[in-house]
Simulated assay, not measured.
Amino acid sequence: MGINFLLLFFTAIGAGSLVFFAPKFKEKYFKLILVFAGSYLFSITVLHLLPELFSSGFDGGKMGLFILIGFLLQQILEFLSSGIEHGHIHNHHGESKSGVITVMLGLFIHAFLEGTLLSHGNLVGVDSAGHLHSGKSVLIGIIMHKGPAAFALAAVLSSSLSRKWTLILLTLFALASPLGMFSSAFLFENGILQKEGIGMLYGLVVGGFLHISTTIFFESSPHHTFHWNKLLVSFLAAGLAIASEYFI
């Protein structure tokens, strides 16, 4: 988990810090990055997370309920964060202190929950045939998602806070997923969190991933216009997800 910590932490710090070096980014390129990340996230959810959840001995009906709750929970979290986790940057200038706290709360809870996916692959990653699936594709997906989210967060914070406070809050966000990873591992190892609880957390996160990835798709073409570049990026991300799941 040490390597996962370093990758998660420095991805967020590095991506967020780009705001100070490239403040006038090209919006169309940022949207393509979001589409790529969203396509990959959706693909690994369908290819990796959903099959494992429904083949790991959990009650299928309850798991479906947890996924739905996670989908709805993400709507609440995005109400708090104003959608920064899927790239909303505009309309945040001059954010009040209470607004900053709300944004950070929504993003921290989301990032904390997604970190739990990386701590118990030996419990949820075993299919009905006893095969342990690799969690590399999930880690890559979370990293791809965390990078644009960290950049968007830093862009919003820097519009109303000093560089010092922007970096402090960015560091707090960068620590959220590792904290979720270590906390769930600690609770399970000490018998506080059982396998059923781990499955519930996974279901909540999968529901959140479905909400975020589909929202990115819909918002990338608000007027239902056709764009070859977005289509090609989506196919490329899906192909990478397939490769990372079955060939790496």
Rank of each mutant, 00 (worst) to 15 (best):
H48M: 06
L117F: 05
I76C: 08
L68G: 10
S39W: 07
S17I: 04
Q75L: 15
I101D: 09
K136E: 02
F20G: 01
E27W: 04
L107W: 07
F21I: 07
F20H: 09
F36D: 08
L7M: 14
I33M: 15
S55K: 14
F21H: 10
S43P: 07
V19W: 00
I89V: 15
T102F: 12
I84E: 06
S43D: 04
S137G: 01
G99Q: 13
L72N: 04
P23R: 04
V126T: 11
K146Y: 03
K26P: 00
L50K: 08
S56G: 10
L49V: 08
L132V: 06
H86A: 02
F9G: 03
K24L: 00
I109A: 11
G14D: 01
S137K: 01
E27N: 04
S17P: 01
K28R: 12
I84Q: 14
H120D: 08
A15T: 04
G57L: 03
F9V: 11
M144W: 05
T116I: 06
A22R: 07
H120K: 13
L107M: 15
K97C: 02
L53F: 03
F54A: 06
G64L: 09
M104P: 03
G57K: 10
F10K: 13
I140H: 03
L117I: 08
F58P: 02
G83R: 13
I33E: 12
A12T: 14
I13R: 10
H92L: 12
S134V: 01
K24D: 02
S43A: 15
A12R: 10
F36Y: 12
G87L: 03
H48S: 13
T45G: 02
H120Y: 09
V46R: 02
F25R: 14
L139Q: 09
S81E: 09
L8C: 08
N91Q: 13
A129I: 04
S81G: 12
S128P: 01
G70I: 04
L32V: 11
S96K: 15
L72W: 06
L107C: 13
F79W: 14
N91G: 05
Y29P: 00
L68W: 04
S128Q: 13
F9N: 02
H131P: 02
Q74Y: 14
K31L: 13
D59G: 05
H133T: 01
M63L: 12
G94F: 12
G115I: 11
E95G: 03
V138C: 00
S55T: 14
I76G: 05
F25H: 06
G60V: 02
G147F: 15
I101V: 15
L32R: 14
A22F: 04
K136Y: 07
L113V: 03
V138A: 04
F25S: 07
L113G: 05
Q74D: 09
E85V: 14
F10S: 11
G16Y: 08
I13Q: 08
H93C: 03
S81D: 14
F66I: 00
V126P: 04
L105T: 13
L47Q: 05
A22I: 07
G135N: 04
F36N: 13
V19L: 01
S137Q: 01
S39C: 10
